[in-house]
Design a protein around this nucleic acid. Structure first.
Length: 217
DNA sequence: TGCCAGGCCCTCTTTAGGGCCTT
């Protein structure tokens, strides 16, 4: 069995938010993230965030995060400074990354942080690798691939952990298909962006990358 | 008054529309 190796830190993150659209004033209310290296979760970050207003009863029920908890939580700006230090310059992964990317950019903009964000999307890659799955919701994929789960959903750290296990599973999947020991982040990330008919061509890049690495070493 | 996210993907498509996925 192949063991996929992540040769650098990878941050897998998830936001719980007050709604769907930061451009309409929605804010992050919880951030959870894990640091992955060498195929293992080696660190984590978790914090509630006080957005400065009450969230809807729907969000309270959906996430289990109450307005009373948010009132006592540190403000978003304080948490985001800490989170920026946590992620450093590492590449990022999220499930349906366009959603988390919008909120991360929005919250970073509020604190004047403008670091380059390289996002991989576990949902887009899963659509390519597991087109036969019932659907590509995070919970469904976790069950479909029998991945580790504490049975908690819609909380930031729990969702980030499950997304990390999904990403590592997909790394292993590509390594097995290509008979290689490692798959670069950019190759796996790119798999989510190619057309379904070009998956085989894209995976050939894994082999060529492996060959080039061996020649350079 | 009516609408109100956005990026990706598929198809009954491309001068478009609707479903998926995230909270």
């Amino acid at each position: 069995m192949h063991t996929a190796r992540t040769q650098q830190d990878l941050i897998v993150l998830d936001f719980e938010t007050s709604g769907m659209a930061p451009q309409r004033g929605d804010r992050a209310i919880e951030v959870g993230a894990v640091k992955v290296n060498d195929g293992r979760i080696v660190d984590h970050f978790e914090s509630l965030m006080n957005p400065g207003f009450r969230v809807s009863s729907f969000i309270e029920e959906f996430t289990g995060i109450t307005n009373d908890e948010l009132r006592r939580a540190p403000r978003c700006e304080e948490v985001m400074h800490q989170f920026s230090e946590f992620i450093g310059g590492a590449p990022l992964v999220a499930h349906n990354a366009s959603f988390d990317q919008r909120f991360l950019k929005s919250e970073f903009a509020r604190i004047g942080e403008c670091k380059l964000l390289r996002f991989g999307c576990s949902m887009l890659v899963a659509r390519r690798l597991y087109p036969e799955a019932p659907n590509h919701k995070l919970a469904t994929l976790v069950a479909y691939k029998n991945l580790p789960s504490q049975g908690v959903f819609h909380r930031a750290l729990a969702d980030a952990e499950m997304t990390a296990h999904l990403w590592m599973e997909m790394e292993r999947e590509v390594c097995q298909r290509c008979q290689v020991d490692t798959v670069p982040f950019e190759v796996l990330r790119g798999l989510g962006k190619v057309s379904p008919k070009k998956i085989a061509d894209h995976l050939e890049k894994v082999l060529s990358f492996q060959s080039e690495s061996l020649m350079l070493s």
